[in-house]
Amino acid sequence: MADGAHTAGADDGETRRDFLLLTTVAMGAVGVGSVAWPIIDSMNPSAEVLALASTEVDLSPMSEGQRITVTWRGNPVFIDYRTEEQIEEARGVDIETLRDPELDQDRVQEAKWLIIIGVCTHLGCVPLGQKVGDPRGDFGGWFCPCHGSHYDTSGRIRKGPAPLNLPVPPYAMSDGKVLIG
């Protein structure tokens, strides 16, 4: 905005590198910048939203083969107490053939507990397979009815338009409970 030249009747067209002016303008910029941050940050999740950012689930009432759905940060999370066969099936797959290659071992902390976010990576529908009688698709995992994506017993995409495996949320397990997020 301001340059060093005085235009009131003075003759100079010279722009003097004015240290005082430069520092003042710099301070002004710092001032404006520091005002911008609170305005932007106020739109970030507020404290009471962050307080609900974790969900704790007690896994002890579950039985082998059972699947439950919990809510975490507004999304469904599938918790699958896998059977031996399902684990074997997941580990027997050659990951080179997968669209999103991932070892089953890398997707679970304890083999029998598969914890994945139940949102299809195609366009966001909730895949079927959680309830008894639901279709599970061709690979024994989950089936998304919206556009026909099939997920396997490790939640990996095997067939259909979805590009990625069902994501694994951050979680920590301790004596029969899991803390998600």
Binding site: P38, I39, S42, N44, S46, A47, E48, V49
Partner: peptide, 13 residues
């Protein structure tokens, strides 16, 4: 009150 307590810089705004 939520603005004053929980929103980042809400009290300032």
């Amino acid at each position: 009150e939520r603005i004053m307590r929980d929103v980042n810089y809400g009290w300032l705004l």
